[in-house]
Design a protein around this nucleic acid. Structure first.
Lengths: 105, 105
DNA sequence: CCTATATTTCGATTATTCTGGAATTATCGA
DNA sequence: TCGATAATTCCAGAATAATCGAAATATAGG
C-alpha cells in the first residue's frame, strides 16, 4: 500500500463518526450492516451518514453490496489489516540522524 | 484507548506529509530524529513542519525531547500499537442486523 | 400504477485545516 | 555580548471538510 492510499484511509478513519461506523462494522463482522442499521445505531441524519459512507468507500476502508432496497456495508478487512501492518512494516530499519549537525555545529 | 483519542490519532496520520513524518520516525526507530533532519528528508518549510509536528504531538502519536538546540522526535510506539490493535479489538463480537426490516418490510 | 421504505444527491452554510513567509525565541560556542 | 543554528509562533489567505434539510432516485409488494 502506498503512502497516499494509507493517508486516505487514515484520514477517513480520522473522524469520530466515521471511526464509530467502521468499528461498528468490524464488530458486526464480515456480514456487516445495512446503512439503515448504522443510522439507528449512531443516530445521525441520513444525508450526513451517506457522505461519511461515501468517504469510507472512497478510501477503500469499507465496501457496499446492494441487496434489494438495502445497501449492506462491510469493513474491508484486508485494507484495514494492511493499514495496521504498514505502520510497523519498516520499523527500525534505518534512517540515521544526519551528520550535518556534527559538520555544521 | 477511547474513540475520541483514536480518531485524533487517525486524523493526525491522515495527512500525507504527517504520515510520511511518522513512517520516517518509525523507520528510524526508538531514537527518532531531530526536527531538522525530518525537514531535510521531507523538504518542507520549517513552519509547516512545526505545525505538523505539533499536531502529531497533540494526538499523542509522537513525542519530543529537547537536546540542547535540537528537538528530537520519536514515534510513540505504544500509542501506534494501541491504535493498530483497536481496529480489530472487538472484531466480529456482535452487532447483528436489526430485526426492524423484517418487521417493517 | 400506487404506496412505503431505503438511500442518495443537491445546495447552501459553517467550521476547520493547510500552508508558508516573516518575525521571534532559545541555545550554543567563542 | 555577538553570530550562528534550531525551531517556533504569528498571521493571513486558500482550500477542504462537515453538516443537514429538502428533493430525488430506486426498489419492493400489492
Amino acid at each position: 500500500m502506498d503512502i497516499e492510499t494509507a493517508a486516505r484511509c487514515m484520514e477517513a478513519l480520522g473522524n469520530p463518526k466515521r471511526l464509530e461506523i467502521v468499528l461498528l462494522l468490524v464488530k458486526a463482522g464480515p456480514e456487516g450492516l445495512p446503512v439503515g442499521d448504522i443510522r439507528r445505531h449512531l443516530e445521525i441524519p441520513g444525508s450526513t451518514l451517506s457522505h461519511h459512507l461515501l468517504h469510507l468507500v472512497g478510501a477503500g476502508v469499507i465496501r457496499q453490496d446492494r441487496e434489494g432496497r438495502v445497501l449492506r456495508c462491510h469493513p474491508d478487512f484486508d485494507q484495514l489489516r494492511g493499514l495496521a501492518t504498514m505502520l510497523f512494516a519498516e520499523c527500525c530499519t534505518g534512517v540515521a540522524a544526519d551528520a550535518s549537525q556534527a559538520q555544521a555545529g
